[in-house]
């Protein structure tokens, strides 16, 4: 299960997608919308994706995990659109016979998502809004010089 969805994520279904008789461990990551970031109060978030490519890239992460951890099974669902505080943005489940693989593969998945899956987040605060450049917030789009008008 590798999907981009527009409604709430059912975590149980993501977990069920990776469970089987040889699962000893399932590690799940749930990323949700947090109210406070560095003292600033978020009102809501908007996620946008290049959907077809994002889905392919989630599948690619599943393959990469398979290569590194042949017995692991991965499921990833990312939600897009407007998300309120506490809403789940992403759920990642990885099952494996043993826990070490499940933890490592799960961590690998979220880091890869934040690195290369074409999904973008716009934060809305009381006094403004901003597309978030990357998770470390070292890249802000306020710095990029896209003109308002153009004529290619």
């Amino acid at each position: 299960m590798f999907d981009i969805v527009k409604g709430p994520i059912d975590v149980s279904k993501v977990i069920d997608a990776v469970a089987d008789r040889n699962t000893g461990a399932i590690v799940t990551f749930i990323g949700s919308v947090r109210e406070m970031t560095k003292g600033k109060k978020t009102l809501y978030l908007e996620y946008e994706a290049y959907e077809s490519m994002a889905k392919k890239k989630l599948e690619q992460i599943g393959s990469e995990i398979k290569t590194q951890f042949p017995d692991a099974k991965t499921a990833i669902v990312h939600r897009i659109g407007r998300l309120e505080i506490t809403d789940i943005a992403v759920a990642i489940a990885v099952s494996a016979p043993h826990r070490d693989d499940a933890y490592r593969a799960n961590r690998y998945a979220i880091e890869r998502i934040k690195e290369m899956v074409p999904i973008w987040k716009k934060e809305h605060w009381e006094n403004g809004e901003k597309w978030i450049g990357n998770q470390q917030e070292t890249v802000s789009y306020e710095k990029t010089g896209v003109p308002k008008e153009f004529g290619l």
Partner: peptide, 10 residues
């Protein structure tokens, strides 16, 4: 073609 600014999913 698509222009992909640094991503911020997750």
């Amino acid at each position: 073609v698509a222009l992909i600014p640094p991503v911020s999913g997750g």
